[in-house]
Design a protein around this nucleic acid. Structure first.
Length: 1017
RNA sequence: GCUCGAGUGGCGGAAUUGGUAGACGCGCUGGAUUCAAAAUCCAGUGUUUUAGGACGUGCGGGUUCGAUUCCCGCCUCGAGUACCA
């Protein structure tokens, strides 16, 4: 009578939840009272998606399902749960699409969001949509701009180790100049007194302040991608090409906004100890920040004319030039035999001698031509050139030749190294290649083949006052000596660079900045948002300006306090606005705070009460690809916002889980494309057999005979070469046996319409063969596991699965696939098992006549304890599993429980009611339906999670495994309250024991009560 | 190269503190039901065997009464990162 009609049930409850706002989170009232205020809070967040035109595929929901299970579980546990969702809706694809079609990105974004929402709703997530955010929404990016202004108006004090308002810095400048200021700032800041400061012009003051601001403008060498017409951050480049599109990237100097994230390097590192994140993710942040401890040392350049003279005693130290280097091994300073500068180093042109000038210039030109990618790919080739100049060793006074080489990177450290060939492999290789001396300063170390880089197990020698010391002793002593001489000091260096924050794009947040006398000025915060202007085209201008350069109304009137036409720019009251926009990570670096606010969104980014209540994200779920992007930038912004008192947490995400990627199983087809024929497709086994035969015998076989028949038929000569290629077929044309739907495939592409197919049985399928006369053989494709992508036609849409099996099945199946954090290929082979389970679950509650709902209220009597045992075993397991994010194993537990309860003919409310709650985080729709049938009018969402009671699991006896020498031989049921001695005598008395002992006396009997018995003998 | 992770049946995977290896599901085999099919239900399913057993968690060793689990050395695969001084 009542079958499991999942489609009806799911639609019904999705509608019900939306209508009743079942999952709306409520902030406690400011007075502190209210029902919600009594509950502990819990904040579960997914990394919000970029709404792409392709829609959701089955991989997207994996993390959302996991977080939804957790959020629902926490509601059952009595928490006030915040589980919101939104869209990271600024981004390149919408803009690329706009360039191609002229369609406004806002419109495509809107459409894509609508589709995403429809797909998400079908999966039954318990999101509170009333708090949705969209980063491209002006009401939202108003606050992104606001935060930018706060960064602009802040500086970082190294002494207090936090950020302060810029006005506090100005006060210091006015009172005493900048002599005592310890700030994170540009390298080239001049020292001035308070008087000098007061005498500076306004523009000069602004210029100086810009060197201190946490976001600043600087001429920086950036990764420029000509095809995309924009700058890319380091984490947007993969293997020297752009992450999106795979276009080449070149180095280029541009005036760009940067974020002084380096100010926070140490705190970003330290914070990792406070948060519960996967170790690999923490490791990659640690590597990205790249802390290394060492020292800076200044080497004085010798006057080059004298330096090359034979009589070195004549050399005077009158050279003004110094080369600072950073080294992690100051203890090896007496091993320095040359120095190497990066080709781009500023000093190169100043120190190069006349004789070497030509060689050096040629070398610099040659390296500049090599792209970053070539330079990276070709690490083996050693190149370099001598500058002709020498430096003086700070302790021995020896002259050290100065070389340039492209193994030294201008962007790291000081762009120069002191080369110690005996201790560093790169220096060693360079020295060998150019025949430079390799003095050995390690006692008993063999450096005939390679450098000796083990710093722990060595004693320094040939090193003057460092002789006989080990690494750490020598390091301490040399740093003290350097500091005493004033030519160096201990230093921590970070690999982390300041983050470039400008993008030459349209579809991003406009900077709230205009330019007066070339200096950036902020737009008053009360005028925000500064809305993105309309443009006719989304491309850069002919002059190479970003797309915003095309906007007519894009100037700032300081009197009217509004955006006006560019025509009106007079640099007196109307000024040009910034043309760049912010990068994708701007909006995603603080969105988690926005969800906390539900009412005063116009007044604040999030109110103090909301921030105080929700604090930070308790559980964050998303992909590991954001390890060094989003997850680092968010942490940086949160630390900054804490410093300035806008929020009250040091870290945004307390616990983080990376869900593994669901991969697609692409369908690949072998193809031969003759010049005058439609393509010929070859079934998998036929092709692969031929490949093997060809390899083994060197002869072409059956497949080539088939080809010649085909070619003959069309009066063609066989092509000279048989070049096969593989093409992707849409996975929807392929069934579970990897057989292709040939007709669907032919209709897919016009060029395949007349294609010829060689089937698995060797027969040929052509256009002319009528469907009835079609040969019996199937056509098989080969499979390859790849990332799901539109271009590989391996995308599986969750909607199809939902229609066929239901959202509850999809949810449970995705969890059942394997551990959450593991990457796994999508394969629907097992889905029927999970679907069958839900049908059985339904049946368990419908054991009445004609499959009608039947649950009895009669309490279980003594003898029916088995059902309660099953229930409590399951409660225990499921609760542990959820808390350990081991969702795959709890699905098995549910299967076991339902199988057992069916065989026990259980229909008791005492068991079936708690079971419905247990399962509701996983399969919420069926659980709600059963809950309602059980007679409840309230949603199951906040029903109290069943309490595990040990008493139902107490056993009186145990089936002991009896093993001999560690091998299990038989089992023996014994009461659990026996002592060791009693167990031993019971086991020894058993006939099988004697049989396995074969007359030997046991040497030893190990008894672990409640676990095992092991007899050694 | 470096860092991290993983190797278990035909497949996805389980075994959370060292204690009966292979839970659960898929697939496969046989059976029941059916005119037939779907669906459903029942039984079996690591390999091997002389039917007692032997072997079995990437490979080789070790610790232990006992190792998928701990230690040492290797192999393979995956991810990240890369001339970082």
């Amino acid at each position: 009578m009542s079958k499991y009609h999942f489609n009806e049930i799911e639609a019904k409850w999705q509608k019900h939840w939306a209508k009743n706002q079942t999952f709306k989170a409520v902030n406690p009232s400011p007075s502190g009272g209210g029902q919600e205020g009594d509950k502990p809070k819990y904040y579960v967040l997914d990394m919000f998606p970029y709404p792409s035109g392709a829609g959701l595929h089955v991989g997207h929901p994996l993390g959302y399902i996991a977080s939804d299970i957790y959020a629902r579980y926490k509601r059952h546990q009595g928490f006030n749960v915040l589980h919101p969702q939104g869209y990271d809706s600024f981004g390149l694809p919408a803009e690329q699409y706009a360039i191609q079609t002229g369609q406004h990105p806002a419109k495509t974004t809107e459409e894509n969001i609508a589709r995403y929402r429809e797909q998400l709703d079908k999966l039954g997530f318990s999101f509170d949509w009333s708090r949705e955010v969209r980063t491209s929404n002006p009401e939202y990016y108003k606050w992104t701009q606001w935060i930018f202004i706060q960064l602009f108006e802040s500086w970082y004090c190294k002494h207090a180790n936090k950020a302060f308002h810029i006005s506090e810095l100005i006060e210091v400048f006015e009172a005493e100049g900048n002599y005592n200021v310890e700030a994170v700032c540009d390298d080239n800041v001049e020292i001035f007194t308070s008087k000098q400061w007061l005498d500076f012009s306004e523009t000069k003051k602004q210029e100086i302040l810009l060197k201190y601001r946490l976001t600043y403008l600087a001429e920086t060498e950036v990764n420029w991608c000509p095809q995309l017409g924009t700058v890319l951050a380091n984490d947007e480049i993969v293997n020297g090409v752009s992450e999106r599109g795979g276009y080449p990237v070149v180095r280029k100097k541009m005036k760009q906004w940067s974020m002084r994230i380096t100010a926070y390097a140490q705190r970003l590192l330290d914070g990792l100890n406070e948060i519960d994140w996967p170790q690999p993710l923490k490791d990659s942040q640690t590597n990205w920040i790249g802390r290394s401890k060492g020292a800076t040392v200044k080497f004085r350049v010798m006057s080059s004319e004298l330096g090359k003279g034979e009589n070195s005693s004549l050399i005077t130290h009158n050279s003004e030039l110094e080369i600072p280097v950073f080294t992690t091994r100051p203890d090896t300073i007496f091993g320095v035999s040359f120095m190497t500068l990066a080709p781009e180093h500023d000093l190169v042109s100043k120190i190069t001698t006349a004789e070497q000038k030509e060689a050096v210039e040629n070398y610099i030109e040659a390296t500049a031509k090599r792209s970053e990618r070539e330079r990276m790919a070709d690490v083996k080739t050693i190149t370099g050139v001598f500058t002709g100049a020498y430096a003086e060793h700070p302790f021995s006074g020896e002259q050290i030749p100065i070389w340039i080489g492209d193994y030294v990177l201008v962007g790291y450290g000081t762009g120069a190294v002191m080369s110690v060939p005996c201790g560093d492999q790169r220096d060693y290789d360079f020295a060998k290649h150019f025949n430079l001396p390799i003095p050995n300063i390690f006692k008993d170390a063999d450096i005939s083949e390679e450098a000796y880089s083990d710093k722990e197990n060595t004693i320094i020698t040939n090193s003057d006052f460092l002789n006989g010391l080990n690494y750490s002793e020598a390091t301490d002593k040399i740093i003290a000596a350097l500091e005493e001489k004033g030519i160096g000091k201990g230093k921590i260096n970070y690999r982390l660079r300041d983050a470039v924050f400008s993008r030459q794009r349209y579809w991003g947040e406009p900077f709230p900045i205009y330019y007066k006398d070339g200096m950036p000025q902020i737009i008053p915060t009360e005028c925000l948002p500064l809305r993105l202007p309309d443009v006719e085209k989304y491309l850069p201008t002919e002059e190479g300006e970003p797309p915003l350069g095309r906007a007519d109304d894009w100037a700032w009137d300081v009197e009217k306090l509004s955006v006006v036409s560019r025509q009106l720019i007079d640099h007196k009251t109307v000024f040009p606005l910034e043309l760049n926009t912010m990068p994708g990570w701007a909006g995603s670096s603080w969105y988690f705070f926005r969800y906390m606010e539900d009412e005063k969104r116009d007044e604040v980014f999030a109110s103090k009460e909301a921030l105080d209540y929700w604090q930070n994200v308790d559980l964050y779920i998303g992909g590991s690809e954001h390890a060094t992007g989003h997850l680092l930038y968010s942490r940086f912004w949160v630390k900054f916002m804490l410093d300035r008192g806008f929020v009250n947490v040091e870290e945004p995400f307390k616990k983080l889980i990376n869900q593994g990627m669901i991969l697609g199983e692409s369908a690949l087809i072998y193809m031969l494309q003759p010049t005058d024929l439609p393509p010929i497709f070859i079934s998998k086994e036929i092709y692969e057999k031929e490949e093997i035969d060809l390899k083994e015998t060197g002869k072409r076989g059956d497949l080539y005979d088939l080809y010649s028949i085909i070619f003959k038929k069309y009066n063609l000569n066989s092509p000279a070469g048989f070049v096969h290629q593989t093409v992707h077929a849409d996975v929807s044309f392929v069934n579970i046996q990897n057989e292709l739907d040939i007709e669907a495939f032919k209709n897919w592409r016009p060029e395949y319409k007349y294609a010829i197919f060689i089937l698995e049985d060797g027969s040929v399928y052509e256009l002319n063969s009528s469907p009835s006369g079609r040969p019996g053989g199937a056509f098989k494709v080969s499979r390859e596991v790849e990332k799901m992508s539109k271009s590989k036609y391996n995308v599986v849409n969750p909607d199809d699965i939902c229609n066929q099996y239901g959202a509850d099945t999809l949810r449970m199946y995705e969890m059942f696939l394997g551990p959450l954090e593991q990457a796994k290929p999508w394969n629907t082979a097992g889905i029927t098992g999970v679907h069958g389970f839900l049908k059985k679950l339904w049946k368990l509650y419908h054991s009445g006549p004609d499959e009608s709902f039947y649950v009895t209220d009669t309490p279980l009597s003594e003898g029916q304890g088995e059902a309660l045992k099953t229930l409590h075993k399951t409660i225990k397991k499921v609760q542990e599993d959820i808390e350990n994010f081991s969702f795959n194993t709890s699905v098995s537990s549910f299967m076991i429980a339902v199988n057992e309860l069916i065989s026990q003919n259980c229909n008791s409310r005492e068991v079936l009611e708690p079971l419905a709650i247990l399962i509701s985080p996983y399969a919420p729709h069926i659980a709600e339906e059963l809950w309602q049938k059980l007679g409840h009018s309230e949603s199951i969402a906040t029903a109290v999670f069943p309490k595990f009671e040990q008493k139902f699991l107490v056993e009186s006896s145990k089936e002991y495994p009896i093993s001999f020498n560690g091998k299990m031989r038989f089992t023996l049921e014994l009461p659990l309250d026996l002592t060791k001695e009693e167990i031993e005598s019971a086991v020894m008395a058993h006939e099988k024991t004697a049989q396995y002992l074969e007359g030997r006396a046991p040497k030893k009997v190990i008894i672990v009560p409640g676990k095992i018995v092991n007899i050694v003998g």
